[in-house]
Every structure is written in C-alpha cells, then in structure tokens.
C-alpha cells in the first residue's frame, strides 16, 4: 500500500482518510474496515462539508476509527464517547456529530450514557460495531455475547443474557434504529446516509466479524467463512417488532430498519428555550442577581 502512495496512486476516498495514521491496527478479516468504508462512502455520496462533521469514539478496536477519518475527531475514555459528543453538539449545534464505538464501550461501561442520550433525543448518530466480545483485550464476554458462546472469560460457555440492542434503542427513545452486518455493504451505506439526513438520536448496529478472536474461540472458520455465514444466517425483515429480534445462536439474525420516526430534538428544544428567555429579558428593563 505504501508503495502505491509513493507512486502517487490515489483513490477517490483518500481525502476521507488521514494517510499518516494508515496502516490501521485492525486484524485481517475484521469487520471494522467494512464499517469505515461504508461510513466514508456515505459521506462522499452525500457530499457533506467535511469541516462540519465530528467523529467521536471510545476505547476498543473500533475506537481507533476516529484517528483514521480525516475529520475533526476525538478518541475518548472507555464508555464516554456519547457524553463527550453531547458536549460537542450542544456547544455547536451546526456540527453533524457521529459516535462510532463498540458493543462493550457503548453498552457495558457506557450504557448509562446511551440510554440517557436516546431519552433526551440528543441529536447524535451512534454507530455500534458489535463483534460480540472485547476484542482488544483478548476476547472476553460482553453485554452482547450470545448465550453459550465461548470467550476467554466464559470458557464453559456464556451464561449471561445479552442485550437486544435494537430493542434497547427503541425503548430508550431513538428516532431511527437499524441493524446490518458487515456483508450488507450497500444497505449499511444507504442506512448511514439516511441516518445522516435525519435529526435526533439515531442508532445503527453493525454486526462485525472478529475472525481472529471471537471467531476462533467459537470455531467459526476464517474471515471469508464468517462473511458467508453472516450472509446465510441473516434475514432482512424491516420494522419487525424490536422485542423479537434478539440475537441467539442457532437463529437467524434479523436485520433491517426497525424505527424511523420524528420527535422534538434536544438541540431544537434548547434553541426554543433560549428564545423564550431572550423575549422575557427584553420585556424587563434591568436584570440583577436579586431578581433570581
């Protein structure tokens, strides 16, 4: 790849990547590269102003994505990207703020921030790379690991019930909820485009293969075999009842769009509040501390 760069060979997506950060740290066959690809393709197809997009990530393999995109970006502490992104969005509502992080980061250590940002209808797009385990730390079970799956901390099979992220996002108040896998490249890209065009709390779950770690412990074969498995074991069923799309071993993964609705957005409500306060102040002649 470096040889190509030196030879001056360019790619239409080059401007979306920070060249000095490449090569990336992800394993061969990891689904994170697919997600990054779909995300920057969505940006290109929408022709969005790259100076007005902020990508925030947490800790974990996918957390490094903020370094790879050629945008304003921040790699926060573990679990905190949504809270950080909340500060960014409120400080400048003109910015399109996207959180891209993993299942452990967003739903274990950061679960509280997810449900509350969704409840507030904070104007954020949250994309979760769900690889069913903590890959960066060597493959421990997490909040989305299916029952009975093997990981380094569930050597006898996982005995914890996983979250159904679609259901959780729906129940928390998200206005857009979709789930895709790394084989649904076109649909995922279209879904990201659609979500970028909406306001409010939008959530996309992306099932990403982890062939080197989760796949190995669960004897899922090589990267190509896992991609084939995902294609054969997922089914598109738009607007299925979110409570019925749990991910269980031995059952097909239901993908598609599950929620697409409108409700008042937090940043608009803040703008309304400021207008009201301003009108009230203009009606008053003088403001002092004692009047509070």
């Amino acid at each position: 790849m470096n040889g190509l760069i030196e030879a001056g060979v360019t790619h239409p997506l080059d401007k979306y990547l920070r060249r000095e950060m490449i090569p990336h740290i992800w394993c061969t066959g990891c689904g994170n590269g697919v997600l990054l690809n779909c995300f920057i393709r969505a940006l290109r197809e929408l022709n969005l102003d790259m100076d007005k997009i902020v990508v925030v990530s947490g800790i974990g393999c996918i957390g490094r994505i903020s370094g790879y995109v050629n945008l304003d970006s921040f790699h926060t502490t573990h679990g905190r990207p949504i809270a950080f992104a909340t500060g960014v969005k409120l400080a400048n509502p003109e910015l399109q703020v996207v959180v891209i992080s993993g299942d452990g980061d967003l739903f274990a250590i950061g679960g509280n921030h997810f449900i509350h940002a969704a409840r507030r209808n904070m104007d954020l797009l949250v994309i979760c790379a769900n690889n069913f385990n903590y890959g960066m730390t060597g493959g421990q079970y997490g909040p989305t690991t299916p029952l009975t799956a093997r990981t380094m901390t569930s050597p006898y099979g996982n005995i914890e019930h996983p979250f159904n992220l679609v259901h959780l996002a729906w129940a928390s108040g998200a206005v857009y909820v979709a789930r895709w896998t790394a084989v649904h490249v076109t649909r995922l890209t279209e879904s990201i485009k659609k979500a970028l065009g909406k306001k409010g709390f939008r959530f996309i779950e992306v099932i990403t293969p982890c062939p080197e770690i989760y796949g190995r412990y669960n004897r899922m074969g090589n990267a190509l075999e896992i991609m084939k498995w995902l294609r054969e074991n997922s089914v598109i069923q738009h607007f299925t009842d979110p409570s019925k799309v749990d991910i269980e071993i031995g059952r097909k993964i239901v993908v598609g769009e599950f929620v697409d609705k409108e409700k008042p957005v937090f940043t608009d409500l803040i703008a309304d509040l400021k207008r009201k306060v301003k009108d009230r102040l203009e009606a008053e002649s003088k403001r002092t501390l004692t009047k509070i």
Partner: peptide, 14 residues
C-alpha cells in the same frame, strides 16, 4: 462521568 466528558467535548468545540 458524563458531566466531565461533556465539558471536555464542549471545550473542544470552542
């Protein structure tokens, strides 16, 4: 945890 993260986000937004 979130309060502290949010003020860092706001500060980076100027």
């Amino acid at each position: 945890l979130g309060s502290m993260a949010a003020i860092i986000g706001a500060s980076w937004t100027g």
